[in-house]
Simulated assay, not measured.
Amino acid sequence: MENSEAMSLTVALLAAAGELVRRVNEGVAARGFADRPAYGFAFARLSSGGATATELAAHLGVTKQAAGQLVDELVSKGYVERRPHPGDARARLVVLTDLGRASTRAAEEAAADAVRQWGDVLGEGDVRALRELLLRIAPYGPIRPTW
C-alpha cells in the first residue's frame, strides 16, 4: 500500500471512530447521562466485574492518583462503589452500581443506534463485513482513551 493510500485509510478510520464516539456521547446524554466521556472508558473496564484503582489507572493510561480522583468522583455521583477485594485484603474493588450499569446500557443503546445508521449508508452486509475485517486487526480492544 502506498503512503497516500495508508494515510487516507488512517484518516478515514480516525474520522469514523471520532464520529462514533461523538454519537455515543450524544446518545448517552440524550438518555439522561450527561457526564464526562472519560466515564465511559472507565465503565468499559469496570463492567466485567470491577477493577482496582491501580488496574483502572493502567487501563486509562493515567496515574494512580488520577484514577483515584476519578473513582472518588464516580462514587460521589453514585455510578460505582468500593468493595473489599475478594482476593487481596489490602485492595478495594471498584464496581458499577445499578446507576453505573444503566449508564453503560445507555451507551450500548447509543452505539447500536449509531451503527444502525451505518447500515442505512453501507447496507447490512457491508456493515457485517466491516465488523469482521476490523475484528481481524483489533480483536479485543481495549476500549480506552488515547490521551
Score class of each variant (00 low, 15 high):
residue 34 A to G: 09
residue 38 A to Q: 13
residue 82 R to E: 13
residue 43 F to N: 02
residue 2 E to N: 11
residue 50 G to W: 02
residue 96 L to R: 02
residue 126 D to Y: 12
residue 93 L to T: 03
residue 43 F to W: 07
residue 50 G to V: 03
residue 72 D to W: 00
residue 120 D to E: 15
residue 96 L to C: 05
residue 143 I to P: 01
residue 7 M to L: 14
residue 75 V to C: 14
residue 71 V to F: 01
residue 136 R to A: 15
residue 1 M to I: 10
residue 60 L to S: 01
residue 119 G to H: 08
residue 94 V to R: 01
residue 101 R to A: 07
residue 35 D to Y: 08
residue 94 V to P: 01
residue 14 L to V: 07
residue 94 V to Y: 04
residue 112 A to Q: 12
residue 38 A to K: 04
residue 60 L to A: 07
residue 91 A to L: 09
residue 59 H to P: 03
residue 106 A to F: 04
residue 83 R to M: 08
residue 119 G to L: 08
residue 126 D to P: 00
residue 117 Q to N: 12
residue 74 L to A: 13
residue 35 D to F: 09
residue 121 V to N: 06
residue 121 V to G: 08
residue 125 G to W: 08
residue 2 E to H: 05
residue 60 L to N: 02
residue 44 A to F: 09
residue 61 G to T: 05
residue 69 Q to C: 07
residue 138 A to L: 15
residue 122 L to D: 06
residue 112 A to F: 11
residue 99 L to F: 08
residue 15 A to S: 12
residue 96 L to V: 02
residue 57 A to N: 09
residue 20 L to N: 07
residue 45 R to I: 05
residue 61 G to S: 04
residue 38 A to W: 02
residue 71 V to Y: 02
residue 68 G to I: 07
residue 70 L to P: 01
residue 94 V to N: 03
residue 8 S to I: 04
residue 67 A to T: 04
residue 40 G to V: 03
residue 143 I to Y: 15
residue 55 E to F: 03
residue 48 S to F: 06
residue 11 V to S: 06
residue 19 E to I: 06
residue 47 S to H: 05
residue 144 R to M: 10
residue 27 G to C: 04
residue 69 Q to T: 10
residue 89 A to R: 09
residue 46 L to T: 02
residue 42 A to E: 04
residue 78 G to K: 05
residue 119 G to P: 06
residue 112 A to P: 01
residue 95 V to A: 03
residue 140 Y to L: 05
residue 99 L to R: 11
residue 108 E to I: 11
residue 127 V to P: 02
residue 93 L to S: 02
residue 113 D to E: 15
residue 13 L to R: 14
residue 29 A to H: 04
residue 89 A to C: 03
residue 39 Y to S: 00
residue 145 P to Y: 13
residue 42 A to C: 02
residue 146 T to I: 09
residue 137 I to G: 08
residue 63 T to Y: 04
residue 62 V to T: 08
residue 1 M to D: 10
residue 133 L to Y: 10
residue 86 P to L: 07
residue 123 G to S: 11
residue 93 L to I: 02
residue 18 G to M: 05
residue 66 A to R: 10
residue 140 Y to D: 13
residue 124 E to A: 15
residue 133 L to M: 12
residue 3 N to A: 13
residue 60 L to I: 05
residue 103 S to P: 03
residue 43 F to L: 11
